[in-house]
Simulated assay, not measured.
Amino acid sequence: MTASEVAGSDWSSTELDLIVADYFAMLKEEQAGQIVHKTEHRRRLKAHVQRSDGSIEFKHRNISAVLTRLGLPIIRGYIPAWNFQGAIAEAIGRYLEIDSDPVPLTISQPLMGFADAPSLFESAPPAAPPISPRARTAFERVARKFDPALRDQLNRSLGFAGEQLIYEREKQILINGDRKDLARKVRWVSQEDGDGAGYDIRSYDKSGAERWIEVKTTRGGSTTPFYLTRNENEVAKERPDAFRLYRLHDFSRQPGLFTLTPPLDAVLQLEALTFQASLK
């Protein structure tokens, strides 16, 4: 088949499987700190996929879009292109059937203080990304099977590392603001008292007002969904003056942070996903 015969046609399942596998190969290299030779990857891919450079790059951006919604890291430079088709989501689903955790997070030594922490980029909360109606059904089928919120929730090392970063950061902010007295009072509640408080860290602003911080951490992008427990939501309603939800994202690369304040249902779409069941 010639390139001219392929131009303008839909990608086949075989082609999509090949480009998805190539994308994850590059992603693993990047996450391991290696230099990614995108041109060489594309050259090898074109030996099996007769598509133009522009078509291949755009498909890589489609893959980035799906991975962003699945809460997985993406390759630098491949900015998500949201008008993807359901077939690319299905191809990613097939890949994840074989390798369900393709870029596992590795946690290094525990932080000894804020000086050891990675730099943290703080921004405003993002807008929800669009997904075309024709791609939504295929994407949601993959998302249910490889639930990014559940994966993050069950990853204890990820949650611990995110809370530790915020704990050290809160103390340092108070120290820098000449409130060492308050910095000494900051408590990592979820570690000292357990998870029942409805928040993870008790901190303060410079005036001495309490801040009850719930930390949600993901390796994925800023729009990755997350779980909010009933207890956390109730605490946010009862103490909107104190409660703050810190969303840490892109944690395996360059961590970013945005903050949400109550009422949470004004900024989050909350869906009931489970029920407590008991015998009648």
Rank of each mutant, 00 (worst) to 15 (best):
G159V: 11
E232M: 10
R230T: 08
R239F: 14
D147H: 02
R211W: 00
A143R: 11
R169Q: 12
G177A: 09
K237L: 13
G162V: 05
G220V: 06
E168I: 04
R211L: 07
E232K: 11
D241E: 07
E232R: 11
K237R: 12
P148G: 01
L174F: 12
Q153N: 10
K180S: 12
A149V: 04
G198S: 01
S190D: 01
A143I: 09
S157E: 13
E170N: 08
D200C: 09
L174D: 06
L150T: 13
R179I: 08
P240L: 00
S222V: 02
F146E: 01
G196A: 13
G177Q: 09
T223K: 01
D152T: 05
L154R: 08
D178P: 13
D178L: 12
A143H: 07
D200Q: 11
A149L: 06
A242H: 14
K180P: 14
R156C: 08
L165Y: 09
I175R: 13
R202I: 15
Y199G: 03
E238N: 09
W188C: 00
Y204M: 01
R184M: 14
A197H: 06
E170R: 08
D152C: 02
E192Q: 07
D181I: 00
N233Y: 14
P148N: 02
R187G: 10
L158T: 04
E168M: 07
R239Q: 14
L150V: 15
E168L: 08
L165K: 08
P148T: 03
T223I: 01
K216Q: 11
P225V: 01
G162K: 00
I213M: 03
L165E: 08
I166T: 03
E238S: 11
I213A: 03
Y167I: 01
R230E: 11
R184V: 15
F160H: 07
W212R: 01
R156A: 09
S207T: 14
R239P: 14
I175C: 12
K185I: 06
L154A: 09
G221Y: 07
D200A: 09
L150E: 13
